[in-house]
Design a protein around this nucleic acid. Structure first.
Lengths: 258, 258
DNA sequence: CGGCCATTTCCACTAAGTGGAATTAAGGGA
DNA sequence: TCCCTTAATTCCACTTAGTGGAAATGGCCG
C-alpha cells in the first residue's frame, strides 16, 4: 500500500534509521551525556520510541549507558568509524602530509574541511606553534559555514543551486544581521571567484584565508591557512592568499593524478 | 501482534537501525569504498534493503555517494560525531594532558583505549619521537584485544562473566594456536592481578605494558606505555611497568575527584 | 549498437514498529 | 525507613512503514 514512501513528509528512506542517526547527532561538544527524556525533547520523538532506539544503539555499540545516571554517552565505536573515514579519504591521504610540511615551512595553521549540513568539519587542522610540544592536530571540529573563510570558500566551490539552498538556511538561522551577513558572504564568494581565495577574521586577532577544492565525484573541500595574534591588514591577507593559492595549486596537481 | 520483540533471533531493538549501523561498520581502514552489492554481501542483507538503507544514510549525511562509481564512502559527519565523543569523554579530558606530559617526560609512547566489540580502540595514542615533527597522535585506531597488552589489561579489568564471554569469542575467531594463545592471555591477566600491569610484545621490537582503569559507571579503559626498537627483556619490562603503575596511580587520583 | 551484469524500483504482504496508557523503578524528603 | 514525586520502561492494539522477490531500468563493454 504505502510502499514505505514518504512518512510524515519525508520521501523514501528508512524512518527508524534516520531517527537513530539523529539521536547520535544530538550529542555534540558541550552535550556530553543525554537521557532518554532530553533526547526525546531535542529530537522531537515520543519517549517510548527513544527508549527503544537508544537500547538498539547501545546494543550496536554506538552508545554507552551510564546506569547510575540513567543517561547515555557516545561510545568508542564512533571514533573507530571516524578513523576509518579519515583513513579512507583520498583527499586527506594525498595532501595531509603536504599540509603538515607546509605548516612547518610557513609557520602557520593549515586546515582541510568539508561540510556537515550547515557546519564545516575539519578533516585535519594543523595548528602551528613555535613550541613544538603545543603543535596540535584536530579533526572533527566544527565551525559555522557562513562565518568562516573555510565555509565561504566551500560555498564558492559549490554548484549554484546547492549554494542558494544553503544561503536560505542561514537566513532562517541567524535572525539578526542577516542582511549584512549575507552580503558579506556573497562578497567572499566573489573574492574567491576573482582571486582564488577569500579572507575572513572570524575570531579576534586571527586572520584566515581559504580556497575551495573541487574534484569530480567527490564532495567539495576547502583548504585554509591562518595566523594568530595579528591585526587584519589587506597586505597580510594578500600575502597569505598568495601562499594559499600556490599551495592549493600544488595540491590540485597531486590530486589530479588520482 | 509481535510487539517488535525478537526479529530473526534478536531480542528487542530496532532492526533497521541495527542494520544501518552495521552498514557503517562495514567501512574500515582498507575498505574505503563499498557498493550496494558488496555491502549486501558483507552484511548478509538483501540488495533491495541495502539500497534503501544506504539512501537513508546518504540523506542523513553519514555516507557520501560517488555517483561515477556507484559506490559509497563514509562522510565527514562521522568524524564530527567522533570528535564529540572525544570531547565528551571524562576520562580522556582528565588524563589526556597528563598523558602528553608523561610521554614527553619519559620519552615513550602513551595510549588510552577501550573496547569496541573484540577490538581495542585508541581514544588517544601519543607516539613519542625524538624528532618533534614526527610526534604523532592518533585516535580511533583499532588493535586486536587478545594479542595486545592493552586488550589483556582491559580483560583483566572486566567482570568475570563479561571476560569469559569475550574469551569464547576469541576461541571461535582464531582457529590456529587457540590453546596456546588463550593460556597466554590468562597469564597476562594474572600478571595484572599480581603486579598491576602486563607486558606484551605484539609487534617485533616493540615492548608494551598496560594496566586497566576501572571506574564506577564507566566502561573499563586501559592505559599503556610502549617503546620501539628494543629487545624484550624482563628488566626493561619491569622498569616500564613501574613507570606505568606510578602514572596510573596519579591518573586514578585525578579521576576519583570527578 | 545490442546483450549483459548490477542496481534500483515496484508492489503485495505482513510483521515490525509505533506511541498513548499503564506500570515500574528511581531519587528525595520527612 | 517509608512514602511521594518524577521519569523511564513495558504493554498492547493498530496499522503503517518496511520487506524482499520479481520486474524494470540503466551503464558498460565487446
Amino acid at each position: 500500500m504505502a510502499q514505505m514512501r514518504r512518512y510524515a513528509g519525508g520521501v523514501d528512506g528508512n524512518r527508524s534509521l534516520e531517527r537513530g542517526i539523529e539521536i547520535l547527532r544530538a550529542f555534540r561538544p558541550g552535550i556530553d551525556t543525554l537521557g532518554n527524556g532530553e533526547i526525546a525533547e531535542r529530537c522531537g520523538l515520543p519517549r517510548s520510541t527513544v527508549s527503544r532506539l537508544t537500547r538498539t544503539l547501545v546494543n550496536s555499540g554506538m552508545l554507552d549507558e551510564i546506569r547510575t545516571e540513567r543517561t547515555y554517552r557516545l561510545a568508542a565505536s564512533v571514533i573507530s568509524i571516524g578513523h576509518a573515514m579519515r583513513t579512507g579519504s583520498p583527499v586527506l591521504n594525498a595532501i595531509g602530509p603536504m599540509m603538515r610540511a607546509e605548516s612547518a615551512k610557513r609557520r602557520l595553521n593549515v586546515g582541510l574541511a568539508t561540510a556537515d549540513r550547515t557546519m564545516m568539519v575539519y578533516l585535519e587542522s594543523i595548528r602551528y606553534s613555535p613550541r613544538a610540544a603545543l603543535r596540535n592536530v584536530v579533526a572533527g571540529q566544527q565551525v559555522p559555514m557562513e562565518l568562516t573563510s573555510l565555509g565561504r570558500a566551500y560555498l564558492a566551490g559549490l554548484a549554484e543551486s546547492e549554494r542558494e539552498r544553503l544561503l536560505k538556511l542561514f537566513k532562517r538561522r541567524s535572525a539578526a544581521a542577516t542582511r549584512a551577513l549575507l552580503a558579506e558572504v556573497r562578497r567572499s564568494i566573489s573574492a574567491v571567484e576573482r582571486g582564488g581565495y577569500c579572507a575572513v577574521s572570524w575570531q579576534p586577532a586571527v586572520l584566515a584565508v581559504a580556497t575551495p577544492i573541487v574534484l569530480d565525484g567527490l564532495p567539495v573541500y576547502a583548504l585554509n591557512m591562518s595566523l594568530q595574534n595579528v591585526d587584519r591588514s589587506d597586505a597580510l591577507a594578500s600575502e597569505l592568499g598568495a601562499y594559499l593559492n600556490a599551495f592549493a595549486a600544488k595540491c590540485k596537481e597531486v590530486l589530479a593524478g588520482r
